[in-house]
Write a protein that binds this DNA or RNA. Structure first.
Length: 280
DNA sequence: AAAAGGACCTGGTGGC
DNA sequence: TGCCACCAGGTCCTTT
């Protein structure tokens, strides 16, 4: 389900509902996610307060504390391919795949739902930036450190296809299959182009395109292909803006000439306009 | 070292 | 209707 814009949407959506709230208990109905959910989360989190919520790549981090001045830990949440978080009254009917509830003293609940169970919920009392899952993450695409110079420098000598390259979270975080396709279309770069053949202008256009597509998607509340919703259960509207993703066979919205093509690259469906994005 | 492939899961869809 | 193959928003681990 979720790439950076969807995670950001959920992050902003849950902040007003959980920050400064005290946790009453945690219910784990299914602990077997990508990694086992910490068994005694209820004991560890009971009576703690959520002090802040932020996003790093596709991870959500919930900082908890007994008091304002003494942070004691972070909950790392990843939604995998099919995960979602909802804010609900704790009494709301449980559905299939509702694996974890974080229940607050005021009767509200942060409910984790994930049919495929590729996501995770992990607890750490260490510096989360040094956590094995976060420590090797690359730059945030909407920050200044993500720029043409950075890309050009990292591209040198590499033969990897540009689409796979920008989906590598050790280079830049948050770009999944939808936005990789859309950004390459905007930048007019063929998804199979080897990155060592990108010139500085290509890198500049790629940076601009990635930022533009992510920002626009955040503005529209993310992309709902099948089942993505925000923390209130509302669908996103960016799917209406998709220019190439799942558009194979359609006439290109930009040049009105090319027919959008689909091909598999590293087992992921890829879409492009053969006129706007000529093969290198 | 870099790049590609496999694995982990469930559910939806379309063909026969 | 049933069965089956294939596809899906991610990413770690293994193999080449």
């Amino acid at each position: 389900m979720p790439e950076l814009p969807e995670i950001e949407t959920i992050c902003q959506g849950i902040i007003p509902h959980i920050v400064d709230k005290k946790i009453k208990t945690v219910i784990i109905r299914q602990s077997q996610l990508r990694w086992p959910v910490t068994e005694d989360l209820a004991r560890l989190l009971s009576q703690q307060t959520i002090k802040s919520v932020y996003r790093r790549g596709k991870y959500l981090l919930l900082q908890t504390a007994h008091t304002v001045d003494h942070p004691v830990g972070h909950l790392l949440i990843h939604l995998g391919m099919s995960g979602n978080l909802r804010i609900l009254p704790a009494t709301t009917q449980i559905n299939k795949h509702d694996h974890v509830d974080i229940i607050f003293e005021d009767g509200s609940c942060l409910r984790y739902h994930d049919p495929r169970r590729f996501g995770c919920i992990l607890w750490t009392t260490d510096n989360p930036d040094q956590h094995p899952l976060l420590v090797n993450l690359g730059v945030e695409p909407l920050m200044a450190s993500f720029n043409a110079s950075y890309l050009a420098q990292r591209a040198a000598g590499k033969s990897i296809a540009v689409k796979n390259w920008i989906m590598n979270s050790q280079l830049v975080v948050g770009i999944g299959n939808i936005y990789a396709n859309e950004a390459l279309f905007l930048a007019k770069i063929h998804p199979l182009q080897p990155v060592k053949t990108l010139n500085f202008d290509d890198c500049q256009r790629l940076v601009t395109a990635i930022q533009q597509v992510l920002q626009q998607a955040i503005l529209l509340g993310g992309t709902t292909l099948r089942d993505f919703t925000d923390s209130q259960g509302k669908a996103g509207y960016f799917q209406q803006e998709l220019a190439v993703y799942h558009c194979q066979g359609e006439v290109c919205k930009r040049c009105q000439t090319g027919i959008i093509q689909r091909l598999m690259i590293n087992q992921r469906a890829s879409f492009f306009c053969p006129v706007c994005q000529p093969h290198p």
